[in-house]
Nucleic acid binder design. Structure first.
Length: 110
DNA sequence: CAACTGACGATAG
DNA sequence: CCTATCGCCAGTT
């Protein structure tokens, strides 16, 4: 492994329940990093490096404000599609409502 | 080996 | 409300 923290972040990403989304900072926080630190960038790195390899649910990771982080044409459309399939709804601004964010706790299975 | 780069986030101005 | 900066760190160049 690249490092233990990488593994923890991967674990956190995998822990996001279906039908919910999590922000980069949230993942970092769950992985044991202080909030506000640049750890969110680690999540970015990991997604780019392992989303495919480790088969991670990369589409459940969005911006803190609920917007899709990917640039249009880079998979944003696909991500929206996948999230819709999980029952998520986008508001008029193309953002996900706060109530869809993962609690950071164990799955809540609605 | 040094510098740059990210699908970010919080704070300050 | 918006722009500017720093923080963090591994993979790339």
């Amino acid at each position: 492994m690249a490092s233990e923290m990488t593994a923890r972040i991967v674990g956190a990403i995998r822990a996001v329940p279906k039908g919910a989304v999590a922000s980069y900072g949230q993942i970092a926080m769950v992985a044991g990093h202080p909030r506000g630190s640049g750890a969110a960038r680690e999540v970015v790195r990991i997604l780019n490096a392992l989303s495919r390899k480790e088969n991670l649910p990369w589409w459940r990771i969005v911006r803190r404000d609920g917007a899709i982080a990917l640039p249009e044409g880079e998979g944003a459309e696909l991500q929206r599609e996948l999230l819709r399939q999980e029952g998520l709804v986008f508001d008029r601004e193309g953002k996900i409502a706060a109530c869809f964010f993962w609690d950071g706790r164990i799955d809540v299975d609605f």
